[in-house]
Design a protein around this nucleic acid. Structure first.
Length: 803
DNA sequence: AGCACGCCGACT
DNA sequence: GTCGGCGTGCTC
């Protein structure tokens, strides 16, 4: 095998195919599919993935691979095939499909350098250039651009005085540490020690260290231990008495923490019933998807843990997916506590290097379990025994950029190849999954009651319109205020939940109704108190807050919407004695602050925890007896067919934070639409009724789970061009699909303009369209190929956000 | 994505 | 007549 097919790191339609390269003799045995290689591509050198080895190519003139970047493949056979599947199902470029499966650290960094050609002296260059090359004869292209000397450089390059180098670099190096070990047997070492001259006192001490500890030791530890210097050690290495070597060490984000080991807990009756089919599937190596439907606090995690235990005992591996926001220390503790060092953790809080190290542990089979957010589904295990997706309904499992995959789909695809079970766990399953369970596509397992039979908290829904009518204009209903005060007196803790961040969301004139919009995008600007500015979340546009209304010059221009900061201020006024911890993106930005805030709350350093999304999950403290939702309907009015589902899930989720232990819990939900079924049914925590109601609505409106969706979005800086192109696309789709498909559009996107580009879309609803993928591919082919029209077409198969 | 090649306007 | 603008097309 002397030819390698390579997918190059150039994400365009035209290069979205394999390119053949000759493998130089010295790499013939080394290079394998799944390895990264550096290849020449046009005038540059870039990274690529070897996908195939072959004997012949249709092309005569092949260029040679420059060098491999790995000693062993980073993508095994299974992952290479999975990449293909990803590309087919999400319609993305091959290179994206491969890159998404690897830690970001393995993505190449490129550098372009100009240096003096060999044998050319500095004086050959024109004088203005000499200074740039006087140091080491090299110049970074970025610096050349900054200094505006590019054309001068090009002239010299043409003359052969300079040459351009393209360098492919690793983003993150393996962390190496220098280790020193004895190079001669112990007896020889002793002998040499005696023979050293008397003035070599330090060297003697170093050798003596090795006589006492005849093993490798890290250089800096050795130096500290015997109070020597590195040069002393070096001298001994020079005498060949000691040897030095580089060893890879891991950056361990949990290095200084100990985990209390836990034993499997006895299962409740419900848990025992639920786990049997899972253990059965494990025993028989059956691929089966289980939907573990259990109310909050019903002990789903223990089922995961014991299933994993079984998998490990079989010598297999497990992947556990957890939504990013609930990847809390508490969650990590539960897994590390049970399986100790066999667990790798992957989440966004880790640095690129730390993520890479965790990934290396998986690759080197040093761990058996990986707990992580969405992308952990690509963990390079080769003997998977089970995949668990906790909080299965979470929307964060869908990636919103290329490749737009859903972790649940990837999980099922991988589990099929390994013939192993998948567990989807949730207290509020997504309608898609629950419907599949009803149709027996998934195996439904229920945990209907909380462990130790704690009742679910009592939920009260407060109509905020009523409050307003009775003259209460604050954001706290009288009832909620009373209860907060009551908990304060009883020294119990409360959690207040708000579905927004920042201070206020938008600025509106109370006289003429003017709302500040982004000039580039058709959405309102968001007020940020930190820098007193209005900001656009889509294009980054910033502007100052107007003192008077730009439209009518009224001074009554106010902030609308409520953010955590504002609630905190307000709370400080009405309950000055309360100690409050605020948790949102602003206060948890720094590494570890999330953890610290939670610990403070757990230690009773605050009475009220106020926060957004991130406190809805995983929070499990005994002293919380009150949960307040300040406004339940903030999400309800989004242009999203899942708005009701999300509202119901969130409210149920938040309510579950109260009274998980001895003390009973109460929940207050404030809303302006108490009659809405998703609010009402969250109040009674009746998932089954919600499911039925919502299914009816989905059915009449042709939405999932009754129909699949695909969304085509077209954008261009000219409105007319977008409409025309979208129209063409819609017609084409109509022509190719059956009459059973519902094709909507062309219609303006819910955000009609982003960054001065108009956006139109076509929404396809369908049940079975064997022609669809081919049709969508053709459309992408057409529009991605020609870059000159300026049209951008993107396709989301099974979109979660219709914007 | 880069970069080279190539064909038309403002300079020595 | 040349330098340089960026439109078009290619990269094994």
């Amino acid at each position: 095998m002397e030819i390698a097919s390579v997918i190059v790191d150039v994400p365009t339609k035209q290069t979205d195919r394999a390119f053949d390269y000759l493998i130089p003799d010295q790499w013939r045995e080394t290079i394998q599919p799944g390895m990264r290689v550096i290849v020449p591509f046009g005038p540059r050198n870039i990274q690529g993935f070897v996908v195939e080895l072959k004997k012949e190519s249709e092309l005569k003139q092949l260029r040679e691979i420059i060098e491999p970047m790995d000693l062993e493949p980073v993508l095994n056979k299974e992952l290479l095939a999975l990449g293909n599947w990803l590309m087919e199902t999400t319609l993305c470029f091959k290179i994206f499909a491969y890159q998404v499966m690897l830690p970001a650290a393995l993505k190449a960094k490129y550098e372009k350098m100009v240096k003096l050609a060999p044998g050319v002296g500095l004086d050959s260059l024109p004088s203005p250039l000499r200074a740039f090359f006087s140091k080491d004869g090299k110049l970074d292209w970025v610096d050349a651009l900054k200094n505006g000397i590019v054309s001068l450089l090009q002239k010299e390059t043409a003359k052969g005085h300079l040459e351009v180098n393209y360098i492919v670099k690793e983003k993150v190096k393996k962390k190496q540490r220098k280790y020193i070990r004895p190079h001669v047997p112990l007896a020889a070492l002793k002998e040499e020690m005696e023979r050293l001259p008397a003035n070599a006192e330090k060297q003697k001490q170093v050798l003596n260290y090795f006589v006492e500890h005849f093993t490798a030791v890290e250089l800096r530890l050795l130096v500290a231990e015997v109070n020597a210097t590195a040069s002393t050690v070096k001298a001994l290495v020079g005498k060949k008495l000691l040897a030095e070597e580089e060893m890879e060490v891991y950056r361990d984000p949990y290095e200084h923490r100990t985990f209390e080991r836990t034993k499997p807990l006895p299962l409740t009756k419900d848990q025992q019933i639920a786990i049997v089919p899972i253990l059965n599937a494990l025993e028989q190596n059956l691929h089966e998807v289980f939907l573990l439907y259990g109310v909050t606090g019903s002990g789903k995690t223990e089922i995961y843990l014991q299933s994993i235990q079984e998998v490990i005992e079989k010598g297999q591996e497990a992947i556990v997916l957890v939504p990013e926001i609930s990847l809390t220390p508490q969650m990590v503790n539960r897994f590390k506590g049970r399986f100790g060092d066999l667990v790798a953790v992957l989440h966004s809080g880790l640095s690129a290097g730390e993520k890479y190290d965790e990934w290396r542990k998986i690759q080197r089979k040093e761990v058996k379990v990986v707990v992580g957010a969405r992308s952990a589904i690509f963990a390079p295990f080769e003997n998977l025994g089970i995949i668990i997706i906790d909080e299965e309904h979470e929307t964060s499992y869908k990636q919103e950029e290329m490749p737009r995959y859903h972790a649940r789909d990837v999980a099922i695809e991988r589990a099929k190849t390994y013939s192993c079970p998948v567990i989807l766990g949730s207290a509020t399953p997504s309608l898609e999954s629950f419907a599949r369970a009803q149709k027996k596509v998934y195996h439904l397992l229920s945990l209907p009651s909380r462990m130790n039979n704690q009742p679910l908290p009592a939920v009260e829904i407060i109509d905020m319109r009523e409050e307003l009518r009775e003259g209460n204009r604050s954001m706290f209903s009288r009832k909620l205020f009373e209860m907060l005060k009551d908990r304060l007196e009883k020294q119990q803790q409360s959690v207040l939940f708000l579905n927004k961040r920042g201070h206020s969301s938008f600025v509106m004139c109370r006289d003429c109704g003017y709302v500040m919009n982004c000039p580039n995008c058709d959405i309102s600007l968001t007020y940020h108190r930190v820098n007193e500015q209005m900001k656009c979340h889509y294009c980054g546009y910033e502007s100052f807050v107007p003192k008077v209304c730009p439209e009518c010059s009224s001074e009554y221009i106010r902030y609308f919407g409520t953010g955590t900061q504002k609630v905190e201020d307000e709370l400080g006024k009405i309950l000055p004695e309360a100690r409050i911890i605020r948790m949102d993106v602003d206060t948890t930005g720094r590494k570890g602050s999330h953890e610290r805030l939670l610990r403070d709350f757990q230690d009773g350093k605050a009475d009220i925890l106020l926060g957004t999304q991130m406190i809805a999950k995983g929070l499990d403290f005994p002293n919380i007896t009150l949960v307040g939702v300040l406004s339940a309907d903030t999400m309800l009015h989004l242009p999203d067919f899942r708005a009701s589902e999300k509202t119901f899930q969130l409210l149920t989720q938040v309510s579950g934070r109260a009274g998980r232990h001895q003390l009973p819990g109460e929940v207050i939900i404030q809303t302006y639409t108490p009659e809405h079924y998703s609010v009402e049914l969250a109040g009674t925590q009746d998932y089954d009724l919600f499911y039925q109601q919502e299914m009816m609505i989905r059915k009449t409106h042709h939405y999932p789970p009754f129909y699949y969706l695909s969304l085509i979005t077209v954008s261009h800086d000219q409105l007319l061009a977008v409409v025309t192109a979208t129209e063409k696309i819609v017609n084409y789709v109509r022509l190719r699909l059956s009459d059973a498909a519902v094709i909507l559009g062309p219609a303006a996107s819910p955000i009609p303009r982003i960054n001065n580009r108009y956006r139109y879309q076509c929404l396809i609803k369908y049940k079975r369209e064997p022609n669809l993928t081919k049709t969508l591919k053709t459309i992408l082919d057409q529009y991605q190929k020609d870059t000159k029209s300026g049209l951008q077409v993107s396709i989301d198969v099974n979109p979660f956000i219709l914007m």
